[in-house]
């Protein structure tokens, strides 16, 4: 709760604006889907991957695992931890570059 007159109770920022970019021509977001999106800050690599694969984004038939780079650095933590360790906060838009994950793909049955 807020104090009645003075300071608000400080709530941890729970969302951040992310601007998704990629340098792979085959992985571009469709024209009508926005690259600028508000996401929860507790997300890590897996959660961000799921968003990109979802029907309103890349709409992939089978999920592509992604890795993410912010300022040229691979994201290994949650977005919240990234913000904290880099002295940033949720007021700033994060430009997040996505690339196909280098982790070997899981076996997929052939059709």
């Amino acid at each position: 709760m807020d104090t009645p007159m003075g300071q608000p109770a400080v709530a941890a920022p729970q969302e951040v604006r992310v601007n998704f970019t990629t340098s792979s021509p085959d992985l571009q977001l469709p024209e009508d889907s926005s690259s600028l999106i508000v996401v929860p800050t507790d997300l890590k690599r897996y959660g961000l991957s799921r968003i990109l694969n979802s029907s309103s984004m890349l709409n992939t038939s089978s999920p592509i695992p992604f890795d993410f780079l912010i300022n040229g650095e691979f994201l290994r933590t949650s977005l919240q931890e990234y913000l904290e360790t880099h002295g940033k906060n949720a007021e700033e838009t994060l430009t997040v570059q996505y690339v196909r994950s280098l982790i070997p793909p899981v076996h997929q049955a052939s059709f």
């Binding site: 969302e15 889907s33 926005s34 600028l36 999106i37 508000v38 996401v39 929860p40 799921r50 968003i51 979802s54 029907s55 309103s56 984004m57």
Partner: peptide, 13 residues
């Protein structure tokens, strides 16, 4: 846009 996590584990924006 804003991400929305649906109860059936689906993701919408």
């Amino acid at each position: 846009k804003k991400v929305k996590f649906l109860s059936n584990d689906e993701i919408k924006t």
